[in-house]
Structure formats: C-alpha cells, structure tokens
C-alpha cells in the first residue's frame, strides 16, 4: 500500500512544528505531498493541478501566516476546498410539476446503471411514488431481462416492449414510455439506457435522442468509483452528449479512494447526488461530501494529526 497522506504530512509537519510561520518552501513541500495523495486517490491530473494551485494561494495568504498553527491551517484549507468542490450544490431529485417525473440514466458500460434503476425504484416506492422502469438498453445481451428481474425485486412495473439483444429502437421505446406512464398513472419514469463510450459518437447521439424524446427532469450520470484518469474525458463527453443534471458514484462499497468524485464535480460543476454502495436494492444513499473528502485524502488520520500538531 502507498503511505497515506497523513504519514507524509506528518513527516513534513515535523519540520514545521514550532516554527510559527510557514515559508514558501514549507508550503511547497506540503503541496507536493497533497498532490501525491490526490494522484494516488485517482483525482485527475488537471484537477489536481487546479486544486493544489488554489490551496497554495490560500496557504500563502494572511489567513495562514497569521494563524497560531499554520500547518494545521493548511490541512483545514485542503479539507474546506475539497468539501467545497464535492458538495458545492448538493440537492435532491427535481420532481416535475406535472407528473410523470422522468429520470434518465447514462454512463459507461458496466458502471451500475441498471442496478441503480432498481434502487431508485425501490426507494421512490417507499416514499409513496409509483415508479415505472423503461428498458432502453436493447443492445447488451439480456439487459432487458436484467431490468425485468431488478424491477420485479423492487416491486415496480417494467415497460419492456422490445426483446433487446440488438432488436428494437430505444428512442421509440423511450418516447412511448411516457404515454404508457400517463395512462397507467405512474408518477415517475426511470429510463435505463445502454452503456456507451464517451468517444462513440453514434451511440452518444442515440443517448441525446433518447433524452430529447423523454425530456427528463433528471439525467443521472453513473460513474464507477474505481475509475482513474479517464474520469475527466468521460464526464466531459457525457456532459456534452446528454447534459446530465446530476452524478451518481457507484461501487463506493469497494476500497477505491474515489478521486473521480472530485474530478467529475470539478470539471462539470454538476452535483454528486447519490452514492451506490452495493449490489442490493437498498445499497444506496445520499452523497456525503465531507465523508468523501476524508476518503480521498485519508482525512480521518489527518484530522487526528491536526489535533496533535
């Protein structure tokens, strides 16, 4: 395992202790450790750069040089900046004024869209809604069956008029679904789509067409917490392609540090709304920026360190 940020910072801070003021060299040494920690946590390089730049500027300002304990102050700045980016605009699902509320899911292959569809349906049902799931992945083998099973488990109706496995037009299914929801009095429509690459122009256009056909209240971009540097390119491609309204970070039950959260939030400015934390129907929660900041930076230890500093 890589040494944690707290290990590295404690080494740096040892030299700082008792000095009172931070020199520019002290700050730079600290910034180097923070940079390394962010990279190890898979925060994308351009984001690391912008982030450390902002931290450096604040660390050299009066707020730090006049603080009682400057090194402690630097760590606090890092944490604040991180939480700021991650949680700038946390918000809840936007419901349509006139039902049905339409939620579309999009993301790379295997990100966790179909599983999330079931989780959303289960959660919204428990909140008194009558969600309907729509099978618009007509590409991947048995994606339709998977959604049907997931829907059954969640106790939600699944609109799946096409068999999939290459047969059927997903844009038509999406469009028809809205009428079906209205006649069957479903107040929420959750549209599952096929996984696609950011660079696949044809499939990205299809996703945009699905979006146009259903005019969703929310487009959720589902991204795997294990993703590395590609998070930026992918988030930008989906942002341009389907103009998503919120982000869901999946597989957070793993041990990935999840730096992608920072990358995506920072390059798109879109809020991270939910965390997916398992394969079960209820493994799903509101996203917590402070917990994510600690996770990315190994901050649990860092905060103890502040107390010692």
């Amino acid at each position: 395992m890589f040494t944690s940020l707290s290990d590295r910072l404690s080494a740096t801070f040892k030299n700082l202790r008792g000095k009172g003021r931070l020199s520019e060299a002290d700050v730079d040494a600290t910034i180097r450790e923070i940079r390394r920690a962010l990279l190890d946590a898979d925060v994308a390089l351009p984001v690391v750069r912008a982030f450390t730049g902002a931290v450096r500027e604040r660390a050299l300002s009066d707020e730090v040089s006049q603080a009682l304990n400057p090194s402690q102050q630097v760590v606090k700045i890092v944490n604040d900046e991180l939480v700021g980016i991650l949680g700038g605009q946390t918000r809840r699902i936007q419901f349509a004024k006139r039902p049905p509320t339409v939620i579309m899911l999009a993301g790379l292959q295997g990100a966790g869209k179909t599983t999330l569809a079931g989780k959303l349906a289960h959660w919204l049902t428990s909140e008194g809604h009558r969600p309907m799931l729509v099978a618009c992945d007509l590409q991947r083998p048995n994606a339709v069956n998977q959604l049907q099973i997931v829907g059954e488990r969640a106790g939600a109706f699944v609109y799946a008029p096409e068999p999939g496995n290459g047969v059927g037009d997903p844009v038509k299914v999406a469009r028809d679904a809205i009428e079906v929801a209205k006649t069957k009095l479903h107040d929420i429509v959750i549209v599952d789509t096929a996984g696609r690459l950011g660079i696949d122009e044809e499939l990205m256009r299809q996703a945009a067409d699905i979006r146009a056909a259903v005019n969703p209240d929310e487009v959720l971009f589902v991204i795997d917490a294990m993703i590395g540097q590609d998070a930026v390119t992918t988030a930008q491609a989906f942002n341009e392609g389907v103009d998503f309204t919120g982000v869901v970070l999946s597989k957070l039950d793993g041990d990935a540090r999840g730096g992608a959260a920072l990358s995506v939030a920072s390059v798109t400015g879109k809020p991270i709304m939910f965390a997916s934390t398992g394969e079960g129907l209820t493994d799903f929660e509101t996203f917590h920026p402070d917990r994510m900041a600690s996770r990315i930076l190994d901050m649990g230890d860092v905060l103890t360190l502040i107390e010692q500093a």
Partner: peptide
C-alpha cells in the same frame, strides 16, 4: 481488469 480502472486496480 477494466482499462478505465485507476490505482485501485493494484489492490
């Protein structure tokens, strides 16, 4: 291993 995987791939 998924090519998009970052440093967690090692673990």
């Amino acid at each position: 291993l998924d090519a998009t995987t970052g440093q967690n791939g090692m673990q």
